[in-house]
Write a protein that binds this DNA or RNA. Structure first.
Lengths: 339, 339
DNA sequence: CTGAAAGCGCTAACAC
DNA sequence: GTGTTAGCGCTTTCAG
């Protein structure tokens, strides 16, 4: 930048003002402006974000803390965030918390130290209220995504898990199912809400919620395999299983096939999230479509465009049911398993 | 940092020296050192990476350019990179090229401007030789992963695609298959190498490579669906399909099921990469296991630990065959399709 | 309308 | 052993 100041016989300050198009606070001669811009191009000038950040200005960096990058759902979310960010000229700094909350805290410190303009938090951290409290007092706006709809001090954007589960259960009961089981993960964030919604819905039905009908594991296809075995061992095995995520539902589909069950004839299976793979499982998965674009767009808007209105603001968006081939009417035999 | 200098009645330089443990070039009194460290803790001091970077020192930032974040294979790679980076105290800046090469160039500029200490390039960019040339002249070390084994000026780490395809085909021919088709993507990087390896292997067999036995599309399950239809419409449909990636193989599995084919009885299917989902498809996918950890570790070592030896250095690691349930002996009927 | 100068937080010559 | 000083590249008062 000094070079371009010298080349144009102007002072650095003028050049700086022009290149940052100060909002009309200080008028500048059109002629000089053009001259500066021209030489800037010529010299291939690119501002140094470090120096800019050091001086207190924006770093154009969006921090992203995510617990499990390998979860295909979050992978899609990361993509959506990078797209939303880059459309605003921002870069994304990715912090991976490896599902360990203390790491998330460390990362938060790192990102704040790096002077990110805002921080997005992907995934459930409600098991660690302290983190959320710390975040609420952060210097930069923090927005949490998919944290569940619990009240908190920081901004958050979520999906209406209750509505999603209701849609699934309406669909399943409409097909005649009465013995419906639920497969969740650790009782955190969204998954917790989905489980609660399931239990509530059941309470409204005549049918009692049988013992062993709510299974839990980690959010991994492997744990769905063992959960299905437990379900099938029940005196009255379910005719349908509602999985809290597509990842779990995929494990269910796999395990069902390995055990000789036909889906959906012997067992209906549903997921939640509508990850890209959900349309290509065997059979294609009936699931709840996450309004990914909208959620991320909301969050990025809150974090970057309206940082003041962000804190404490909780948005809840609506999901929609996608019916594919993994659900069907309850079979005539009325019993799953032992095919 | 000035605060801690004042609190200890020392000068900033001393504090800086102590906190950066200058390698014995300048001796320091043990007493002062401890005093400084103590007050640093007390004041919750954290160095400002911006200022440090501005001064020319390392920014502890690793740039990562990836073409398709949603590809589960790359998602796994990103995780591996963030882990390798964080074990060295580095953060990862993620640039998403959205499969557009010109964006990759832009990103490269951005990352270089941000003074990343090194840049990693994930995925095939061999369609844009200019990018690779530019990168070769970059200020920071650049290492490309999964670029194929072609010679290039920048450091690269790849997998031996030829060996992987050979392993798959040895397995399939061992099961009696002779009519084996290949499903690839755009002829880039690894996928290109895999297709060539397939064609070469076939040349060594007695069987001729029939018309239409090498299909191409984009790397997406959807395109595998239409490719399978084309394959089944052939006068002599294959008894096995070798997919260039697990993503394609998943689409094949889905389409096969939708068309009423039984896998592996009517059709054997193989993949490549061993993404996490591969073990949980229906049926579980026989595939080639990518030595992900090793590849990423190599690349990060080249980029961060040995930046001088990086350029032009090409490493090729060995994959291994994972036999699961999607491959089986060629069926008695000897013909796939029309089940 | 434009220039001069101070300083963001830190490091690295050089002195003492 | 420790202090002084200058400067990384940029923004931003405050004077012209």
């Amino acid at each position: 930048m000094r070079d371009i100041a010298r080349a144009t016989d102007l002072s650095q300050s003028t050049v700086s003002r022009i290149l940052n198009r100060t909002p009309t606070l200080v008028p500048i001669a059109e002629a000089t402006r053009e001259r500066v811009i021209a030489t800037a191009m010529e010299l291939g000038y690119r501002p140094n974000p470090l120096a800019r950040g050091l001086r207190g200005a924006s770093t154009m960096l969006l921090g992203l803390i995510v617990r499990d990058i390998t979860d295909p759902f979050f992978a899609g979310a990361i993509e959506a965030v990078t797209m939303a960010a880059s459309s605003r000229g921002y870069n994304v700094v990715l912090g991976h918390a490896h599902a360990r909350v203390d790491e998330a805290i460390t990362l938060w410190g790192v990102l704040e130290a790096r002077h990110c303009d805002a921080i997005l938090l992907l995934g459930d951290t409600s098991d660690q209220p302290r983190l959320l409290q710390d975040l609420a007092s952060a210097q930069v706006p923090v927005v949490a995504l998919w944290q569940g709809t619990q009240a908190s001090d920081i901004g958050s954007v979520s999906v209406d898990n209750r509505a999603g589960i209701r849609a699934v259960l309406d669909h399943l009961t409409g097909l005649g199912h009465r013995r419906i089981a639920f497969l969740g993960g650790r009782r955190l964030g969204d998954i917790k809400e989905r489980e609660e919604a399931f239990v509530n819905y059941y309470a409204e039905l005549r049918e009692p919620l049988r013992d062993g009908y709510t299974q839990r594991g980690v959010n991994d296809p492997e744990s769905a395999v063992s959960a299905l075995d437990r379900l099938l061992a029940l005196p009255e095995p379910p005719t349908a299983v509602v999985a809290a995520t597509d990842v779990l539902a995929t494990g269910l589909l796999h395990a069902g096939n390995a055990r000789g069950l036909r889906v959906p004839d012997d067992l209906s299976v549903t997921g939640f999230d509508d990850i890209p793979f959900a349309a290509f499982t065997v059979p294609a998965l009936t699931t709840v479509c996450m309004p990914m674009r909208e959620i991320v767009e909301q969050a990025v808007t809150m974090a970057l465009d309206d940082p003041d209105g962000a804190s404490g603001n909780t948005q809840v968006l609506q999901p929609s049911l996608i019916v594919r081939a993994s659900t069907g009417p309850v079979s005539a035999s009325g019993s799953s398993g032992r095919s």
